[in-house]
């Protein structure tokens, strides 16, 4: 595994990094955790002329909650930071459930949340959770900052909406409008495997009634599947078995899986339905217990 020649730069500020991207004219790439980019370069699937390593830029490793409940995740927050958070399960159960299912423990020490979003892998776990949560990404370029809804950020397999001279600096998750409930279920063949099929569900509950409902899928389409519309059948309703089934059917219909060596498209669609049902049923049970 010998990559082609590339230049390596380690800027000390975001401004410097943007200048390097500008100079690179589209041939420079940001290096964050390197857990996707380095394998691609070693396999020669990608051959950037320059790697701009942002790991030395101070102040990007924060995970904070604004007074209004907005969660902000800086560009150098590692998967592991989310996994080890002691508060995330209460505030963002969907993220907490996914954290220990992303890659394997070794990769989680290095790979970044924001890098994973930028990588736009159709099988990536974080993109699905972010779309379910209605998350946005803050990017910065020579002309300043802009915010992009994650649904518009992931534009295709391994393709994001960044201009060549922009850096993603932060992921933003809006506050819940009610009690946050949700989870992430993933069918994988082994630890460190990408999803054969996975489901992110995020609900904001008002008592037993669903306020906001979000859902997205990984592994079952050419890009992360936005199933927010599909699961919106639950809004204003309670989690009865009938309502759960209707939602699960709607979400499964939104999936667009391919038949491959991991299973038929029917099977993967069935898994989506099963996982949606399991997540919603679990939420219904815990709501009942709480009540």
């Amino acid at each position: 595994m010998y990559p082609p020649k590339f230049a390596y730069e380690a800027p000390k500020s975001i401004g410097e990094a943007i200048a390097l991207l500008e100079a690179g004219g589209g041939e420079a790439k940001i290096l964050a955790g390197g857990q996707s980019l380095i394998p691609m370069v070693k396999l020669r699937f990608a051959s950037p002329e320059m790697l701009v390593d942002i790991n030395g830029i101070p102040g990007l490793d924060y995970m904070t909650i604004d007074p209004d409940g907005t969660l902000r995740i800086g560009a150098l927050v590692r998967h592991e930071d989310l996994e080890q958070s002691t508060t995330l399960a209460a505030t963002h159960p969907t993220l907490a459930a996914a954290a220990s299912l992303v890659a394997d423990p070794i990769i989680r020490t290095r790979g970044t949340f924001v890098g994973s979003l930028c990588h736009a892998d159709p099988q990536g776990d974080w993109s699905a959770t972010m779309i379910a949560l209605g998350g946005r990404i803050v990017v910065q370029g020579p002309k300043g900052k802009r915010e992009i809804d994650l649904r518009n950020f992931v534009v295709g397999p391994f393709t994001n909406a960044l201009a060549y001279n922009e850096i993603a600096i932060e992921a933003v998750i809006p506050p819940a409008k009610g009690t946050p409930r949700g989870s992430y279920l993933k069918l994988e063949r082994r630890v460190g495997d990408f999803a054969t099929a996975s489901v992110a569900v995020a609900l904001d509950m008002n008592g037993a009634t669903v306020g906001r409902a979000g859902c997205a899928l990984a592994g079952v389409g050419g890009r992360t599947i936005d199933a927010n519309d599909a699961i919106s059948v639950l809004v204003g309703k309670t989690l009865t078995p009938e309502n759960i089934e209707a939602a699960a059917d709607a979400v499964a219909a939104a999936a667009d899986p391919r038949t491959d060596h991991r299973g038929s498209s029917d099977y993967k669609r069935h898994i989506v339905k099963t996982f949606v049902t399991r997540i919603l049923t679990n939420i219904a049970h815990s709501e009942q217990k709480a009540a």
Binding site: D104, R189, R190, V191, G192, D193, F194, H261
Partner: peptide
């Protein structure tokens, strides 16, 4: 050949 890399051809870990 499908299974020509270790993302497709899986070696089990202590986990599973």
């Amino acid at each position: 050949c499908i299974g020509s890399n270790y993302m497709d051809y899986l070696l089990p870990t202590a986990w599973e």
